[in-house]
Design a protein around this nucleic acid. Structure first.
Length: 202
DNA sequence: CCCTGATTCGC
DNA sequence: GCGAATCAGG
């Protein structure tokens, strides 16, 4: 593959969007992330730092991109722990908590966090989670890697834990199942069988 | 170990 | 110009 104008354009656009080199490479196809990085440098689009234009605050924008069509859309977390640690009223001193809505806040905060135009995918909600499954999840969450939003990858569990409005919030981060947004434990509670038969024999 | 971008250097 | 190998980091 060669760097046609079109491909370069895609590269520029994606790079400007803050996409990683590997993501760009995957999108373009036929090139490795090294090639992308090499091209980026040759084009002089290094980092948006040091350039003529000052970019004090890049501002991570993790909002779902409208034009982009992801094969396996990362299903947004449906509804994590039934009762994490409801913050009755937290001062929320959060100085700069650019936590883009990753999912509707499971916690009844003052105001609901609206997911940016993200059409919530079909979510087989199930309020009833078997006690054992819940216990399992609890156990797993003890080992959670406590990743931040930016640390999530396609291979990390994106299950949110805690209160998004406070420091007491993180993502599970454990290895996610292939193609799934969550780890084994969280997939278990996220994707329940439709019928809410709470006592399924096992 | 997963990932990130940065740099080098033979082609 | 290209990009694999390598480097340096999180």
């Amino acid at each position: 593959m060669s760097w046609t104008d079109e491909r370069v354009e895609t590269l520029k656009k994606m790079w400007a969007d803050g996409q990683s080199a590997s993501q760009i490479a995957k999108e373009l196809g036929g090139v490795t992330r090294n090639a992308v990085i090499g091209k980026v440098h040759r084009l002089g689009l290094s980092n948006r730092v040091g350039n003529g234009a000052e970019r004090a605050e890049p501002e991570e924008e993790v909002v779902a991109a409208p034009p982009r069509v992801e094969p396996a859309a990362p299903a947004e977390p449906p509804r994590p722990a039934p009762e994490p640690r409801v913050a009755a009223e937290r001062p929320a001193p959060a100085p700069a908590a650019p936590a883009p809505a990753v999912h509707a806040a499971p916690i009844p905060m003052r105001k609901a966090i609206i997911p940016a135009g993200q059409p919530l995918p079909p979510q087989p909600s199930a309020n009833e989670i078997s006690p054992e499954a819940l216990a399992s999840v609890r156990e797993v969450e003890k080992h959670a890697k406590r990743l931040t939003l930016m640390e999530l990858t396609e291979r990390t569990c994106k299950w949110p834990i805690g209160d998004p409005a406070t420091e007491d919030f993180w993502f599970c981060g454990l290895p996610s199942l292939a193609g799934k947004p969550y780890c084994e434990a969280h997939v278990g509670v996220a994707f329940q069988p439709m019928s809410a038969r709470r006592d399924r024999r096992r």
